[in-house]
Structures are given as structure tokens and as C-alpha cells.
Design a protein around this nucleic acid. Sequence first.
DNA 1: CCCAGAAAACTGATACGACAGTTTGTACTG
DNA 2: CAGTACAAACTGTCGTATCAGTTTTCTGGG
Lengths: 247, 247
Amino acid sequence: MPVSKRQNADFADSAYRRLCDAILDGRLTPGTPLSRRVLAAEFGMSTVPVGEALLRLEAEGLVESRPRAGSRVRIPTASEIQGNYELREALETHSARLFAERATESDRKRLLATAEKLDAIFARMERKSYSAVRHALAERQHMRFHMLIAEAGRCAELASAIERSRVLLFNWLFTMSAEFGVLPEGWHSMLARKLADGSPREAAEAMRVHVRYRKDEVIEKLAQLTGSGAGRMARGPQRHRNGDSAK
Amino acid sequence: MPVSKRQNADFADSAYRRLCDAILDGRLTPGTPLSRRVLAAEFGMSTVPVGEALLRLEAEGLVESRPRAGSRVRIPTASEIQGNYELREALETHSARLFAERATESDRKRLLATAEKLDAIFARMERKSYSAVRHALAERQHMRFHMLIAEAGRCAELASAIERSRVLLFNWLFTMSAEFGVLPEGWHSMLARKLADGSPREAAEAMRVHVRYRKDEVIEKLAQLTGSGAGRMARGPQRHRNGDSAK
DNA sequence: CCCAGAAAACTGATACGACAGTTTGTACTG
DNA sequence: CAGTACAAACTGTCGTATCAGTTTTCTGGG
């Protein structure tokens, strides 16, 4: 699930992929220190390629680093999360518009199929209790749904921008062990039908409703957490204990 | 005008800034080879910080590098340019919407003022003949106009996404020595008034018209260039001649 | 003259070592 | 016991050297 790819079999690339996966899987939770030397030893390479990997991750917003005092998995702020949803509203509404304009018949079919699958997952999760990790996995399926829409729009730039913004969401999920509320039954299928059958404008507005629904949920959750003693947003330094974390 | 900033006074940062400025000013035109060693000697540092700078520029899309065969200032493809405008339509329409919702009175005033200034520049350019470089400078003023709208939207994520996508435009301008057609008189002032006085939806639609106007211009130009023998899109290797280019 | 193949000159990728700044832990002072 | 100064251990940063892959150039045959 790495965002930027450069299929070199280089060390730097391997380090990037391992770190990216580890962060997105929640094995490296936000706030975890990332020491070049420790990671280099763990990966069996020098610190140089590790540094390159960290630099890329920093450019993508998954890692933050203070000039000479270490890097760590980024802890997103409340306003960043909110801003991310604002950005997504811009991107995904346009993506929906392009879908309505350009999608082929097979695109529409595929979208409807994955929408039903996604609704089934959410329905199952409603009954069983679930951990944040389980939820993140469902969220990853959710990402496929939205990427399918973006790709049918036939605009690589828009699709990759959506992917980038979505990746940051995972980081946030693990920060707050957040769980979304339950969606009305058949929510995604209904959205998919509107995209497949509606005019470009109708598709865009349907997507806007969808994104805002989630955004409002998030804002409410953030208010709860920051209101009731900062929740888990600001965690302590957390000394190095880089065991076999990013295998 | 660098995109990512990290106000270290480090060598890597200095190299990044110098290269970024040189590319955006047109001193380093698309296709120019960027040798780590040559640049290192020129900047009075080792190849390591230069490599870091190139890596950042690559992440931003200004530089491309083939695994072990050198980096060069990126030559954008036709579909990338078109996709960039598509992306911009998504971002800027939403930016306009937020402007209509959140801008303060002083935001509106400032926008109207810069719109008039911008219109004056374009009017002056219409009379005099102008080089691509001159045009790019005007385009930079144009960028301020759009960044002003984005910042009034109070969403840092959206603003930085717009900035990133706009930066790539400069690169393109120098590739094709492209010149836009002449805009109707008072075009930007009219747009600014619609953003300042209209509803969020009206603002968004006004911006959409603006972006598409430019997009159609670009598509037409691209068709001319690729149709009539590829124009200057694909330039030869162009041997190293890194004189005092990036001072 | 043209074209294949070898050699030379380039390229980035990585390792290692030295260095300077930051953080942390501790011992000493009030 | 609180606060401060100091030292140790960490951090990223950068320079130099080496290596392997790519590109260009040169060379020799047709």
C-alpha cells in the first residue's frame, strides 16, 4: 500500500516499503521514535538508505522529524484531520463527477459489486465487537471502493491525490483508536447507484453528502477527545524499543 | 517559492532552495541533466546533501530520475498537464466555496485589490510583446491571487495542495514556452466579485468556469504542439553544461 | 560510409567514519 | 526536596571512498 513507488530493488526502496506498511498496519503507532541507526541494524543496511526512506515518508506526511533530534511517526493534530476531510471533499466530489462522465459499463458494474461487499462488511461489524485494527482493515476495503471511483475518472493525478489523502486517515485511526459510527444499511450501494445512474452534478452532490457525513462524525469525535483531557492525542516521548516491530 | 520548507540552515536545505528557485525561474529548463557531483562542486558541498535535495524535488514532481542513470528536470507529458488542470478544478472550486463561506471582510477587500492589479498586468502584456519568462512572472502573480483565495478558506491542507499543483504549472510553462491567450478585460475582478458576493455554490461555479476556460486553452495548445511534430515536448539528452546556472 | 562491440566516463547507491546539535539522566547545590 | 549544571548517550548531518549499473564514445570490421 505504499504511496510512491519506484520499483528499484534498492535498499532505500525496501526500507520505505517496510516502514510504510508497518505504519499503515498499526505496528508502528503514531509517536513511535524512528532511529536511523536502529532501523538500519534491523534492516541490515546502512543509515543512508533508511534516511532516504524517512525523507520520503516525511514528504508524504506519515513521519515528522525535528532537525537534529530524531524522527517519529507523525501524530496528526485535530485541525489536520479536519483539514484532511475538507481536502477529501474537494477531491472526491470531483472524482464522482468524472465517474459519472467517463465511467464505462464495466466500471459501474464493478463499483456496485464492491459497494455491496463493503456494506456487508459494515453490517457484520455492527453485530460483532471490533478492535481498532479490525476496523482499519475494513477501512482499507473502504479505500478500494473510493479508488475504484477515482480510477474510472481516468485522471491519474486526481487518483493519486485521493490516495495520498486517504493514507493519512490510517495514521489517524491508530492514533485515536477511533471507530466510526454505524452507517445506515446499504449506504454504499445507494451511493454507487447514484454515481452510476445520476448526472455529473447529482453524482458530485451525492458524494459530498457522503464525505460530510463522515466529516461531521469525525469532528464530533475530536471534540469529545480533546474536551475530555486530550484523550490519546498527545502521547509522551516513548523511549526507543524497536524490537521486531517492522518485520 | 519553494514548496516544502524546513528552515534548517542545512546544506541540503540550501541546495533544495537553490535548485527549486532555479527551476521555477526557468534558469534550469525541463530536460536539463542534474548531476549530483557537478551540483555538489558548484554549491561547495558533498554529493549527499545534493542527493537529499533532488529526492525532495522528485517527490514534488519537479525532477525525475532513472535509477542509476542520472536525474533531470522533469519534462511533463501532455496527459499530466491535462490531469493537473483536472485536479486543479477539484481543488479550486472547493477553495472558492470555502472562501464564500469563511472569508472575512478584509479577505474580500484584499482579493479585489489583487484582482485589479492582476488584470492590469494582463492588459499591459496584451499590448507589449512578451517572452515566456515575462509571462511566467505574470503567472506567478496569478498564483498569489489563487493562494489568497485558498488561505481565506482557512484550510492549510487544501491551500498546500493547490500550491503544489500550481508549482508544476511553472515547469510546464518553460517546457513549451507556452503563452496563454488574452483574457477578457477585467476577468479576474469579475471573478473576485462573484467569490466575494455570491453564495458558496455560485462562487464554486464561477471558479469552475475560470479553471475550465484555461484548461480548454491548454488542451488546444497541446493538440497543436503534439500534432505538429511534437514541438519542443521531447528534447534530446542535452549534455552536461552546468555552468553558473543555479547561482 | 555504416554498424557492431569494447572501453572509457559518466551516473546514482551505499557504507563508514567524524562531527555537532539535542535530549536525557544524574549528581551536586541551595 | 526543588532546581541547576554537567556529562553521557542519543540524534541527524555531512564528507569521502567504493561499487555497480548506464550511457557515451571510441575503435575496428564490414
